[in-house]
Design a protein around this nucleic acid. Structure first.
Length: 151
DNA sequence: AAATAGGCTTTAG
DNA sequence: ACTAAAGCCTATT
């Protein structure tokens, strides 16, 4: 498996990569969605995360859950800073997201002969955000608090 | 290098 | 129990 290019993330587990091999966390859906939105709001301008990254940071749920939470969100969050692992935003959002990237100076890779406005990719190696150790810890705590049934 | 196909998890309805 | 979801991975062109 390809080790994530860089970043002080915790050492990879044996099979951790296969989408969602973490123990079920069974968080309260509303709380989970809130946490996802919180993380999204934390991403600095010009930087991005993938759906899977957020799931890993929270150590809760999977990439698709993150996507669902965002799709249902009405809150004012920078949704365009959350991408699929391939560096492309969700289908249908690419065009709208692009103006944001231009605004924020996010690194884009556009093919020589683009098919359309939505034919581009964000260069994850450049634009990918990774939180500071302190932020990582805060996010880990946030994720841990999710799986704990509220008293 | 890029695009495609298949297989797979987690959670919600 | 089954299906759907703003996904991810690996193998194969």
């Amino acid at each position: 498996m390809r080790p994530r290019a860089d970043g002080p993330r915790q050492p990879p587990g044996p099979q951790e990569a296969a989408a969602g091999s973490r123990p079920a966390a069974r968080a309260d859906p509303a709380a989970y969605a809130g946490a996802v939105l919180d993380v999204t709001a934390m991403i600095p301008s010009g930087k991005v995360l993938t759906y899977g990254d957020i799931a890993e940071l929270l150590a809760c749920g999977g990439p698709r859950q993150v996507g669902r939470a965002l799709s249902l969100a009405t809150r004012d969050v920078p949704w365009w800073r959350v991408l699929r692992a391939g560096g492309r935003p969700a289908q249908g959002l690419a065009r709208e997201a692009r103006s944001r990237y231009d605004d924020e100076g996010t690194a884009l890779a556009v093919p020589a002969d683009p098919v359309g406005e939505d034919d581009y990719r964000v260069v994850l190696a450049e634009a990918r955000w990774w939180p500071s150790p302190a932020q990582q810890d805060a996010l880990a705590r946030l994720g841990a608090s999710l799986s704990r049934p509220a008293p």
